[in-house]
Amino acid sequence: MNLSPSPVLSNSFRMETVGMDALMVRLFDAIDEAHMPWILAADKALRERLGEALIDLVPSYTTLLVHYDVETLSQIEASRLIREALQNLQPASTAAGREHRIPVWYDDSVGPELSRIAERRNVDTDEIVRRHSGRDYCAFALGFSPGYAFMGMIEEALATPRLKTPRQKVAAGSVGIAERQTAIYSMRSPGGWNILGRTAVKLFDRERDEISLFRPGDRVRFEPISREAFIEQGGDTTPLEER
């Protein structure tokens, strides 16, 4: 049996060769929050079935990358375990992901795009804050930097393209939007998202048992707070550099 390079169809998912020791499990083709219970269920089932032979499992919006141990498994064996794991898969309950409330100081000094987006839409900044903090978001995938979660979907009316020129430095805790997604910068890094505010919550904290606050599938809600509350929580009020 030669799996490479054509996709193997089995039930409702595809399995694709992506490297010597990696198979891509593709469950869906487009981004949709409704997919997450399936991705989470697949994540759990694959971890259980592959056990010690699993080196890394990277879930994303529509896929799970399975990096397995080639010292113990051939590709044929790995693909058999994956098929077994995903047989009769049932979506995880929405309670499978944890819930987080993230306090955010929405302000132009730390979120320069707040008023720009408001102006462009002819509303005041409070309206933007109300809309951004008015719904739960789903953490689709972690990446870009440790603990950084790609979350969505934000309201269609808030959707904004990335900055044409990314900033060289975006402060840790910066809360941004891009297209219909939102995220928090987990560490100071370059970045091109539109920044609306800042949180004092640490997304990646080596002093904490759970080093990464978020895991794929978690649900997140932003909570507007005052400057005073932000400072009380240990927030850094240094204005965000323009570029």
């Binding site: 490297g19 891509m24 083709d29 990277v58 919006y61 896929t63 990358l65 995938a141 990446g143």
Partner: peptide, 10 residues
């Protein structure tokens, strides 16, 4: 393309 996990050497 929707972002997905990337293996070593991709």
């Amino acid at each position: 393309m929707v972002s997905e996990g990337i293996p070593l050497g991709a």
